[in-house]
Design a protein around this nucleic acid. Sequence first.
DNA 1: GCCGGTCAAGGTCTT
DNA 2: AAGACCTTGACCGGC
Length: 297
Amino acid sequence: MKLGYPCINNTIGCTPNKTFRLASYCSSRLVESIKNNLLCLQKILEYNVAYNLLFFRISSDLVPFASHKICDLDWPRFFKSRFQELGQYIKQHNIRISMHPDQFVLLNSPQAHVTHNSIQELLYHARVLDALELDTTAKIQIHAGGIYGNKPAALERFIHTYNQLDTQIKQRLVLENDDRLYSAQDCLYIYQQTGIPIIFDTLHHECLNNGESLETILPQIFATWKTSDGVPMVDYSSQAPESRKGKHVATLNKAHFTQFIEQTRKYNFDIMLEIKDKEKSALQAIAIAQRLRSTAL
DNA sequence: GCCGGTCAAGGTCTT
DNA sequence: AAGACCTTGACCGGC
């Protein structure tokens, strides 16, 4: 089991998200941003290794506008050796990597241009992981998408589009249950039609489920991951008190996390902590997990 | 300098 | 039909 947090680190004082406005696009600006982001990513990974946080989600903003038609830089080539060095570091320290494109990636949109742009965005994410020369245990996670007034049709569109994707994307793509539209059961249905591994989100499952306990749902979810996909990934969070349903807590709820670790002790999986204060909670969580689990962490 | 409206991209839900 | 909200930090223009 490995444990980590997404995208940014608030302790070390750099941002791996540096971007700029589309209106002020120029390639020198792009180069400058990517340089900054790669350097900061390296610093974050070094911090993480020092604290044994061996799971990390790389920000989608690593290469700004990478999937936009304005982008005229062959960035994988331009930064080839930088990516290789970083990838080397990741492999050397056995760090697990994920990425999570945001809400605009919709494989089941009825609008062809939306689906097209989504695939371009997935290709960008795959290129990052390829440039790092990571194996297929490095994953890209997305949601199933919208309903568009007809859920069966929307599900079929997802399946159809998924089945036509290039291997370069498919070998890394995993599907996450969301908190309003597509439950873990819905994702399992998609898995049966496609073979796409399912990444389980604990808070989303609390918001939207079919009454399954962790005990019944987790074995089904974990069975969707093949050896080449690596150990299953799980997104962990808990409900922010007195807030909209589905909102992530600001800082780790230790009692809730402790219970989660106790309930899942028999499984091996990697945990991504989706908690607002990032590495601060991750450090608390790893202390709890190390105390409660017998397997090396 | 600092503040706050705005930012490539799409949905759902409420009024 | 139009607007709020999701979710988020940081850009960047206006002061």
